[in-house]
Design a protein around this nucleic acid. Sequence first.
DNA 1: CGGCATCCCCCGGGATACTG
DNA 2: CAGTATCCCGGGGGATGCCG
Lengths: 115, 115
Amino acid sequence: MQIEPELCKVEDALGILVGKWKPIILLHLLKNGTQRFSELKRSLPGITQKMLTKQLRELEEEDIIQRVVYAQVPPKVEYSITEYGRGLEPILEAMHEWGTKHTLHKREMQRKASI
Amino acid sequence: MQIEPELCKVEDALGILVGKWKPIILLHLLKNGTQRFSELKRSLPGITQKMLTKQLRELEEEDIIQRVVYAQVPPKVEYSITEYGRGLEPILEAMHEWGTKHTLHKREMQRKASI
DNA sequence: CGGCATCCCCCGGGATACTG
DNA sequence: CAGTATCCCGGGGGATGCCG
């Protein structure tokens, strides 16, 4: 792994995942396949339309997700993970796994600290 | 993997890694072992003392790195990865690998788009 | 040497309202 | 239904200066 700032690509990958709702959006699309805008919105309690739109546009820009607009009334827009975007799944899984352990680790640390 | 926002731990892991210099700091400590504050600062062209201190404190708070202060003049402070923190290495490597591919992928996308 | 303290700027992101 | 447009706030992060 290259460690020089110019060659280290960790930040680039991080940049794709960062954004308040991106991981959870990606997981929903990975698990549930193609989803409409309103379905995603319903699945993400608390998100605003503005934010959902923004995050989706940014992921689309990176070729992680695909956006399909149907020319009809009422409008219908579907989002799905690209084949390429699927390459992020192992990283998301690893982070989820580590995060789960970390939650327990912190609890243990606090327990010891309180003795 | 849990996908419900309350149970999904991806954001927690992400929270540890996010912060402008955290990945590169962790990689330096992982690769080079124990390092003094000034050594780290020299290794990170462009970082300010304030930022380096802040990022190190946050990582210490999560038990990812260890801070050892030597009571001497001039002061000496050494930082190192904890055994626990070493668990992040696979994730960092996976992100670096993906990021490298992504750089190439974007280049290819731009080439196709320009045709 | 290894920090805090201070000042300041930018933008991520929330709330709300309007539109094709 | 799936967006834009507008307003606004908090905090991440840069620059600089002081201290034990």
